[in-house]
Write a protein that binds this DNA or RNA. Structure first.
Lengths: 133, 133
DNA sequence: AACAGTCACTTGTATATTGAAAGTAACTGT
DNA sequence: ACAGTTACTTTCAATATACAAGTGACTGTT
């Protein structure tokens, strides 16, 4: 039997496995895409939304909070009147570069039709107002 | 189960971004943990279940199907009477090593309390009958 | 001053995915 | 015959996601 008398553990923190722990932080469908956008120079809520995958705004807001709370990004006000924030990668966040690079390399090798880094870079720049695929 | 009876955009295939496409394949909480286990020499359904993160059996079954359908793993019968399968990484799956390594390195650097590769290796071997966290 | 427009969210609410538990099928070994 | 093992499948409540619409604080235009 499991010990039942304890209080509820807030986050069982899956285990001391660095892979499992990392996945708990950014192992979802969207987090790394936001981080990718930050690498590509995007900074604001609106810019993240314009990316071709079209992240829902509520999910984006939540992910930004999570990434901030885990120290991967931080925000700084870029204007005061209505306070608006730009998001930036911390050192911790920037060190996710190798993780993304490994995934990009794998994708380029094993998923036909994926674009190279520079092609994606181009696509990111002219980030469309189009809602269509 | 419901079937998609209406218009069927079966998999919009998010975009030609290799990162987004990779995430569509293994960007969830469990897939890479199963792949980790395969790297650690685990092969059977029961062995995956015994890993310390305790993946639910229905999720495990689904992930194994998905990983097989995407060519990351394959299965081969290891006995006939009741046909039972052992799962193996394909070349495509083995090449996820660098992705996991990058994540492990990041976790070890930025998540306090995570174990090194060799410590995890040890833990994997004596994969417990313990149900306790 | 009134109104459209922008930006960064927030709030509802369907829908989809997940997780925990229990059940099933095909055996083996006692 | 019956318990045990292995590999799942089924059920269903809980959680997460997606989509649409709305809000608040402005700016710039008429």
């Amino acid at each position: 039997m499991m010990s039942p008398s304890r209080k509820t553990p807030p986050k069982p923190a899956r285990l001391p496995c660095p892979l499992a722990s990392s996945l708990d932080i950014f192992g979802d469908k969207w987090s790394l895409l936001v981080i990718r956008d930050l690498f590509f120079g995007k900074k604001t809520f609106g810019e993240f939304q314009k990316s071709p995958e079209h992240i829902p705004s509520n999910i984006l807001a939540e992910r930004l909070k999570r990434l901030e709370s885990t120290g991967i990004i931080r925000k700084s006000a870029y204007q005061q009147k209505p306070v608006r924030y730009a998001y930036l990668l911390t050192e911790k966040g920037e060190h996710l570069g190798p993780v993304m690079k490994a995934m990009v390399d794998w994708g380029n090798k094993y998923i036909p039709g994926t674009y190279s880094f520079s092609e994606i870079m181009e696509m990111m720049k002219k980030n469309s107002g189009s809602q269509n695929e």
